[in-house]
Write a protein that binds this DNA or RNA. Structure first.
Lengths: 137, 137
DNA sequence: GCATTATTCAACCTATCTGTTGATCAACGT
DNA sequence: ACGTTGATCAACAGATAGGTTGAATAATGC
C-alpha cells in the first residue's frame, strides 16, 4: 500500500485531490471574489452545511485556503500561493515536454541544429519537485 | 448527489483527480521526457503492471495522455494541452484573487492609514508576484 | 501452430470519500 | 441567564479508488 510517500508528494496529493471536486472548486471560485463564511459558501449548493464544512476542512488541509476568526464566524480566505505551486508543478512537466519536442524538431530538421540544445538548457531544471524519486520498494 | 454536473466540471474532476496520485504524477513526469510503454512505466514502481495499466487508463480518461499502437506495444504520450487547461483554470481564480487585492490596496492606501486590514490579515498580503507595485487609479 | 511478450479484463478486498442526521460547542444579542 | 446563530463533532451508510491475483486477448517470432 502507501508505505513511504514524501512530504512534497503528500502535499500535492491533498492539493490536487482537493480540486477534484466541483463543490470545492466552486468554493475556490467564490473565494477568489473575497472571503466568505461557511454558511455563505454553503448557500449555492444543495448539500448540508456540515458537508460544506468538511469540504472546507479538505481545502484547508491542502493549504488552499486559510481561516480567521470573527466572533462566532470563521471566514475562509483563498491562499493563492498554494495555487501557484500547483501551476508550477504542472508547467514544469508541460514545458519540459514541449521543449523536448523543440529539440526533436531541431534534430529532425538538421544535425547541426541539434547542438543548440546544449546552449538552451535553462528550462530543463525548472521542476519544483522530484521527478526521479518516485520509487518505494 | 452529483446529478447536476456539467461536462466541463466532469472533465476537471477527472483531470485533477488523475493528478492526485503520486504514481500517476510519476508517470506524467516520466512521459515529459518522452513516450513510454506500460511495462516501462511500471518499472520504477513496486506495484503490479495491471495497477499501472489502470493508472494509465485514468490518465487517458482525463485526457492527460494519449496512446498509439506499435505492434503489441501501446506507447503512452503526454497531452500537454490538457495540462495547459488545468493551469488556465487555476490561474484564472488565482489571478482574479490577486487583482482583487490590488484594488483593495489601492482603495485602502489611497486616503490614509491602512491599519485596518494589514494587522489582521498578514497571510493575505504575501502575494507571490509583484503585487503592490502596480497601482490602478 | 505454438510459445512468448505486452497489455487488458474480471472478480475481489479494503480503505477512503462524500454525504446524511443528531448532538455539541462557542460566541453573540437581548 | 437564555435562546439563537455559526460551525463542528460523531456515527453511520453508500459509492468509489486503488491494490491484488488469475484468466484472457492480441500481436510477434520461431
Amino acid at each position: 500500500m502507501h508505505d513511504t510517500e514524501s512530504r512534497a508528494d503528500e502535499a500535492l496529493d491533498r492539493a490536487f485531490m482537493a480540486l477534484a471536486d466541483p463543490v470545492r472548486r466552486g468554493i475556490i471560485a467564490r473565494l477568489s471574489r473575497g472571503e466568505a463564511t461557511v454558511n455563505e459558501l454553503a448557500e449555492p449548493f444543495s448539500i448540508s452545511v456540515q458537508a460544506v464544512s468538511k469540504h472546507i476542512q479538505v481545502l484547508e488541509a491542502a493549504g488552499l485556503v486559510t481561516r480567521t476568526r470573527d466572533a462566532q464566524r470563521r471566514p475562509v480566505h483563498l491562499a493563492p500561493e498554494a495555487l501557484e505551486r500547483l501551476t508550477s508543478w504542472i508547467d514544469g512537466y508541460r514545458l519540459a515536454h514541449e521543449q523536448r519536442f523543440r529539440r526533436l524538431d531541431a534534430i529532425v530538421q538538421g544535425p547541426a541544429a541539434a547542438r543548440t540544445r546544449t546552449a538552451s538548457s535553462e528550462n530543463e531544471t525548472t521542476n519544483t519537485n522530484n521527478a526521479k524519486k518516485e520509487k518505494k520498494s
